[in-house]
Amino acid sequence: MDRIMAVAGGTWRRILRMPVVYFLVLCVVALVGSAYRYNMLSLGMHKTIMMDTSLALNTLAAILVAISITFEIPRELRSGVATTLLAKPLGRTQYLVGKLVGISIAGLVITGMIGVGFCLVFITAFDRVAMSMVQGHLLVMGSVIPMCAVGVLFSVVAPDPLAAVLTALVIWFGHSTAAVLGGIPVLYGGITPDFNIFNLKAESAHEVAISWWYILLATLWGVSFAVSVLVVSSSFFSRKDLR
């Protein structure tokens, strides 16, 4: 466990030490705040637009974090950092788990910062934040874990530019699987992801009540799906020839 946390710590600390991350978070919060000025252009729908912009940008941040891992692992493999780490008594699976935990923590911190930033801006503009809005951001935060797991999988099976594209495609089309595979057990949600589980943006923006039970189940699904993806990734990674 200590070894996993060491790898995880190295990953998330490295990401969160980058000043560009905070600059981007600041840009996102500024963009969300600027939606307040869309009052006229949206016929008074600026409140909803502000809420929705924050959720959309937060999701985008989560996707970018997931894509970043597809560059991180191949980079470490190329530079020999991974080989050095794996030469120590550290299993390949532990390395991948550490990477997933690290990138997930980084993703949760970034999306959490955007969520908190939104709440502050929204309270400043409208005096109150509905619980459904907070829940919408919590769901986005929950989506980081399975998305990063997909990123980890492609980072071990494909070269980094392709892995990034594949991760983005799976995340994009993974939002529409319910319509096609919704009735097929095992395949739906077990083998193919449904990231739309975390997408209650419209409901959050329209202040429709979301149960905490749903959020808990969605988070559990994210963790469980990440475990299955990680097992597959680990199987590929254990056969990978590292130089």
């Binding site: 095992v186 739906y188 949600g189 449904d194 589980i197 749903y214 799906f225």
Partner: peptide, 8 residues
């Protein structure tokens, strides 16, 4: 995962 996805 499959069970949870169906429940969700």
């Amino acid at each position: 995962s499959s069970g949870l996805a169906s429940a969700l």
